[in-house]
Nucleic acid binder design. Structure first.
Lengths: 98, 98
DNA sequence: AAAAGTACTTTGTTTTTCAAAGTTACTTTA
DNA sequence: TAAAGTAACTTTGAAAAACAAAGTACTTTT
């Protein structure tokens, strides 16, 4: 048997980043505020996790306006989508003992 | 929609503890050394994660002898089994967006 | 008798997490 | 027009967690 955890992605060790990704994977885009309210996080905490995901190029930031008010939304990248799916696959395999 | 991450168990944020549990759930018992080799960890690191799981009462330790050599094995508890399953359920629900 | 193995504990550094406060750039209300 | 509010951060600093390396006590192998 080989090491069952090596295929797991360290970036997804965090519940918060896992939550962000699971939201982004089913939503075309979501705003900072929606994420903040959904996940019940402080601004700083959310911003830093989003930053980690952006550094990894798992999501990208889109700045737009709603009327004259700025609105920042986050969109998953292809890389992010693949990384997330690969992680879930690895998890499933690990649990199944494959 | 409600907070999708609140049902996730913080103890299972760690890949290593997730790995230990996924091994224990399908094996009646496993030794320290087997875990160490499988997960490719240093003694100290493995011991501390096992300790976290033991504190949570998710596993118990069984000391025995193979000949005159001590052999420490780890066994999942009912609490551990339930906690792990609940975590996986929560994960699945989160991903499915339920 | 020396070297190696088992299962840790201890020590200390590095990394991660997080809240709180501060900041910038608006917009809205009084 | 001044004060207050909102959005989306950044900075700061503290606490917690992760980890490697070394130490320990005992046993077994060479």
């Amino acid at each position: 048997m080989k090491n069952p955890i090596e295929a797991l992605n360290k970036i997804f060790d965090s519940r918060i980043r896992l939550g962000v990704m699971s939201i982004l994977i089913v939503n075309d885009s979501i705003s900072f505020n929606e994420l903040k309210q959904l996940l019940e996080l402080t601004d700083g905490n959310l911003a830093s996790h989003l930053n980690t995901l952006e550094q990894a190029e798992y999501l990208k930031v889109q700045k737009s306006f709603i009327g004259k008010k700025t609105n920042t939304t986050y969109i998953i990248t292809e890389l992010g989508r693949h990384a997330f799916k690969a992680h879930l696959d690895a998890l499933e395999k690990m649990i199944r003992g494959i």
